[in-house]
Simulated assay, not measured.
Amino acid sequence: MNFESYLTYVAAFNSQDWKRVHTEFYTPDVVIDFPVARFDNAADSLTWFEKAHESIFETLIVRTFRTDGRTLVVDLDVHFILLADTPMSPKGPAGRAGDNFEVPMLAVYDIAPDGRIARLTVTFEA
């Protein structure tokens, strides 16, 4: 995955097209490790994303992008708008409708031979 194809992923993510993200960009056995959740396959991740984003609008903003061809390391500012009170907020159960905030994150993507994401590890940056 190069920068151009990564931006195509970001566009799908930012449009909240979760089915496309999980079928076109993730392998079926993708491992996703977030500070707030962990998944061992695309189907479970898709279910969680659809539920979480009933009350959250999330936008990835790329700050830096590095790759060695097999691994992407991306510094992101992730903007959240909470559409309703939700315990699924990065803030935890204190998330309230109308909250609007950014969280700096480091995302590390391991890319499968077919060019899709096989592993995604995200950490919140201080």
Results as ranks from 00 to 15, higher is better:
52 A>L: 07
3 F>W: 08
35 P>L: 10
60 L>V: 05
112 A>G: 07
32 I>D: 00
12 A>F: 01
79 H>P: 01
68 D>W: 11
23 T>V: 01
69 G>I: 13
67 T>Q: 05
34 F>N: 14
80 F>C: 02
62 V>W: 02
126 A>T: 04
17 D>I: 00
4 E>I: 06
102 E>I: 05
41 N>T: 02
112 A>H: 13
66 R>I: 11
95 G>N: 09
47 T>D: 11
42 A>N: 01
124 F>I: 11
110 D>G: 06
8 T>I: 04
67 T>P: 06
33 D>R: 08
20 R>M: 14
46 L>T: 07
27 T>V: 04
15 S>Q: 08
29 D>M: 05
52 A>W: 11
106 L>I: 03
55 S>V: 02
38 R>E: 10
115 G>R: 12
46 L>M: 10
101 F>C: 09
94 A>I: 11
96 R>V: 01
31 V>L: 00
13 F>V: 01
105 M>K: 14
90 P>Y: 12
110 D>A: 12
101 F>N: 09
32 I>L: 08
59 T>G: 05
96 R>Q: 13
101 F>G: 11
24 E>N: 12
100 N>E: 15
56 I>Q: 02
4 E>F: 02
7 L>S: 13
83 L>H: 05
104 P>W: 09
42 A>C: 01
57 F>W: 14
93 P>D: 13
68 D>A: 09
28 P>I: 08
56 I>D: 00
28 P>F: 07
2 N>Y: 03
72 L>V: 06
9 Y>A: 04
84 A>T: 09
27 T>M: 04
34 F>H: 15
18 W>F: 14
96 R>K: 15
58 E>Y: 07
121 T>D: 13
93 P>R: 12
65 F>H: 09
1 M>L: 09
89 S>Y: 11
40 D>E: 12
20 R>K: 15
12 A>H: 07
46 L>W: 04
121 T>C: 09
117 I>Q: 07
20 R>A: 14
93 P>I: 10
49 F>L: 15
35 P>Y: 09
85 D>S: 05
16 Q>V: 02
48 W>M: 07
64 T>V: 10
123 T>H: 09
99 D>V: 01
119 R>V: 09
19 K>Q: 14
111 I>S: 10
9 Y>R: 01
76 L>D: 05
50 E>M: 11
27 T>I: 03
82 L>C: 06
87 P>C: 07
122 V>D: 10
125 E>P: 00
35 P>M: 08
